[in-house]
C-alpha cells in the first residue's frame, strides 16, 4: 500500500485524517517534499485555514507545480475543505491570490446565516456521484466553491442557499465537508476510496 501521501502543508489539523488511516491500517507518508508528491500514487490534501496562507505555503515549499502536474496526470486525489477550494482559480477570501486552477471557477463567502457554518448538514447527491449517499456530514466553512462546469458537482447541501458540497471528476474527489469528522459515513468513504484506488 505504498505511495499514499498526506500532504503536510504546514498548518491545520492533519491528525484526524492520519488517525482514520491508522485505524483502517493503511500505510501513508505524511510529507511536504516535492519528490514524494511526484512519486506518489494517491494524494490526500486535507485543508483548514486561510486560502492565501495555504497557497503561499505550497508555493514557498515549491510544491504547487508538482501537485498540479500529478492531479492533471490522473493520480487519485482527495481534497478536503480548503483542499476543494484551492482546486479553483480564485477565492473571495484572498483576492489576487491564484489557486491551483485545476477547474475554472471561484470560491465565494456565505452571505446569509451564522458564518462559519459549523455542524452536520445533509448531502443531496447528484447523478455524478459514485461514493456518497444522502447522509449528514460535518462541515466547518465560511466559503464554498462555484465551478463553471456544473457537471463536476457530485453533491449539494443547503445553508440558506444550495451550495456545492462535493465534486467528482475522473481521478479527483473533493469535499467541502470533513469526511474524517463525519463518523461512520466518513470512515466508510475512506475505506472505499482507498480500496478502489
Amino acid at each position: 500500500m505504498s505511495g499514499l501521501i498526506v500532504l503536510d502543508y504546514g498548518g491545520g489539523n492533519l491528525k484526524s485524517v492520519t488517525n482514520i488511516l491508522d485505524k483502517l491500517g493503511y500505510a501513508y507518508n505524511l510529507t511536504d517534499k516535492k519528490e514524494d508528491i511526484l512519486e506518489s500514487d494517491r494524494i490526500i490534501l486535507p485543508g483548514q485555514g486561510h486560502f492565501a496562507q495555504f497557497m503561499e505555503s505550497l508555493n514557498s515549499k515549491g510544491l504547487t507545480e508538482a501537485l498540479i502536474h500529478k492531479i492533471n496526470f490522473g493520480t487519485p486525489f482527495l481534497g478536503i475543505c480548503l483542499g476543494i477550494q484551492v482546486l479553483f482559480e480564485e477565492s473571495e477570501e484572498a483576492p489576487g491570490v491564484k489557486g491551483l486552477g485545476i477547474f475554472p471557477g471561484k470560491v465565494v463567502k456565505f452571505t446569509e446565516g451564522k458564518v462559519p457554518q459549523i455542524g452536520w448538514n445533509e448531502l443531496k447527491i447528484t447523478t455524478n456521484n459514485t461514493v456518497l449517499t444522502n447522509d449528514y456530514v460535518y462541515f466547518v466553512n465560511s466559503y464554498h466553491v462555484i465551478p463553471e462546469n456544473k457537471q463536476i458537482i457530485s453533491a449539494f447541501s443547503n445553508y440558506y442557499i444550495d451550495f456545492v458540497a462535493s465534486i467528482e471528476y475522473k481521478n479527483i474527489f473533493a469535499f467541502q465537508f470533513h469526511p474524517e469528522k463525519s463518523g461512520e459515513v466518513g470512515f466508510e468513504f475512506f475505506r472505499r476510496w482507498i480500496e478502489k484506488n
Binding site: N19, I20, D22, K23, Y138, G183, F187
Partner: peptide, 8 residues
C-alpha cells in the same frame, strides 16, 4: 479518543 472516535 481521537484514534477511535471520528466526530469533532
Amino acid at each position: 479518543v481521537a484514534k477511535q472516535v471520528f466526530i469533532p
